Simulated scan of single mutants.
Amino acid sequence: MWNIMESRGVSSIIFDLDNTLVDTAGAGLIAIQKVCELLKSTHVQESHIKDICDCFLRKLRHESFDPSEGKTIDEVRIHHWYEALQETQGTDPDPALATNCYYTWKKTRLQVLTFSPEVRSLLEELRKNYKLLLLTNGDTQTQWEKIEAARCEGLFSLVVVGGDHPEQKPAHSIFTHCFESAGVRPQDCIMVGDSLSTDIQGGINAGVRATVWINSDCKSLPQGSVTPDYTVPSVLNLNDVLLKLR
């Protein structure tokens, strides 16, 4: 088996999770819509609802979570909703409403965060010939909840969540941990992900054989950014890249 893999030039594929294997952005839109429906059933002015949700999303994008501060990620994000309600309406909201908004958003997002049948089929086929690794950045609780929701069991030889380690992508150390834990060499691996700054830069830093950028929006490569070896619109196009690497 090793000789067969050597002849292909690649024996292992490292995947990012969010917006690479699962449509986290799309799931987030569905979750926000569900919160909008919830808010319409309350005393909140309908004209405020979009602004409340937009405010929450801004706070989420700029979130800085440190578990050593003694709060859970759930508590931090409930507070995002509380502040979004407060700042938009100009009054102190009912804390129960902020809590309800958060758990509606969280539950809905996790319900739709699953591998599509096509992605699952691709992974099941790839694992027959390649060692598959999952390497995702993010808070420990949040990412493991996503991994459980996506039903990743049996698809990957190794699953690594950045929040469990001192450094996350693009740090060299977390890639080294993956290589050593999976028993693979950097030059035997490719890195597949949607983020130029973490997935692609991290793969280059770690010395993988090739990097594959998932560019689902067909964006132009930003000026001054790192350059991936391959660019595809979807992870479903990965076989085209693997054929070139044989």
Rank of each mutant, 00 (worst) to 15 (best):
C101G: 09
A27W: 01
G203N: 05
W2M: 15
A27T: 06
P67Q: 05
D164G: 03
E124M: 15
H80M: 06
P93F: 03
Q111P: 00
L17G: 05
R77K: 05
S234I: 02
Y130G: 12
L238W: 08
V235H: 04
S121L: 09
R246Y: 08
L29K: 10
Q143N: 05
V159F: 01
L122F: 04
Y230M: 12
S220D: 15
K146Q: 12
R127F: 05
D240Q: 14
G154W: 02
M1W: 06
S181W: 01
V192N: 07
H80Y: 11
A98Q: 09
W81H: 09
T108H: 04
R61M: 08
L132R: 07
T176K: 15
D66H: 04
E87I: 00
I14Y: 07
I200R: 03
V160L: 15
T42A: 11
G162S: 07
K34V: 01
S216L: 01
V226E: 14
P166F: 03
T72R: 12
L133E: 11
I147R: 02
N19R: 00
E37W: 00
T227C: 14
P117W: 00
C55D: 15
D139A: 13
G70N: 02
K169F: 00
G90D: 10
P93E: 09
A182C: 13
D54T: 06
F156H: 10
S64I: 07
D54G: 03
R8F: 08
L122Q: 10
W81D: 14
T176W: 05
K244C: 14
D54I: 05
N237H: 10
D74N: 09
L133F: 08
F179Y: 09
D164P: 01
T231I: 08
P93Q: 07
V76S: 10
G154K: 04
K59H: 09
A206D: 13
L123S: 07
D66T: 03
D23L: 02
T24R: 07
G9K: 03
W105A: 11
Q168T: 09
F175Q: 05
K34C: 14
S11T: 13
I214D: 13
L126I: 04
Q33R: 11
P117F: 00
L236A: 10
L158W: 00
G9D: 10
P233Q: 10
R58W: 06
V44S: 04
G90N: 08
V235K: 03
W213Y: 12
I73R: 11
